[in-house]
């Protein structure tokens, strides 16, 4: 199955994976990814980060796999959008540190791609 990365990170290197660039915010990436998942596909990475600070990031990348509609991926993405809204109602996007958020986003996508590559090569 083909993999796709939804991102608004202009610096993201997809490492050979097709990238769907989303013009707009972190939330917009989640929305566009959800829209795609309604037509088919499965989330490969969790749409939420692992620390509160990364919810403040201006950029976000999500890795998915093309395929038939996966209900659990849709539900997970809907919850992720709800959670994003809940946190960001109280906070501002941290644009001052954009460069470091872009780098962190790339590192975490690389981490996921490395992990998936290990399975495929085994």
């Amino acid at each position: 199955m083909n993999k796709l990365i939804f991102t608004n990170n202009e610096k993201l290197d997809g490492r050979g994976i097709s990238v769907i660039f989303v013009k707009g915010s972190y939330r917009r990436v989640l929305e566009e990814c959800l829209r795609y998942l309604h037509r088919g596909g499965r989330l490969l990475t969790h749409p939420n980060p692992a620390s509160i600070k990364l919810f403040h990031s201006p950029v976000r990348s999500i890795l998915i796999e093309e395929g038939s509609v996966d209900e659990s991926s849709i539900l997970l993405m809907e919850r992720a959008i709800h959670q994003y809204d809940q946190i960001m109602t109280l906070h501002e996007v941290d644009n001052r540190n954009l460069v470091h958020y872009e780098m962190m986003d790339q590192a975490h996508i690389d981490s996921a791609l490395e992990e998936l590559a290990r399975w495929q090569s085994s």
Partner: peptide, 9 residues
């Protein structure tokens, strides 16, 4: 380990 990928989880 808490991984980024869903299959890893």
């Amino acid at each position: 380990p808490e991984l980024t990928t869903l299959d890893g989880k």
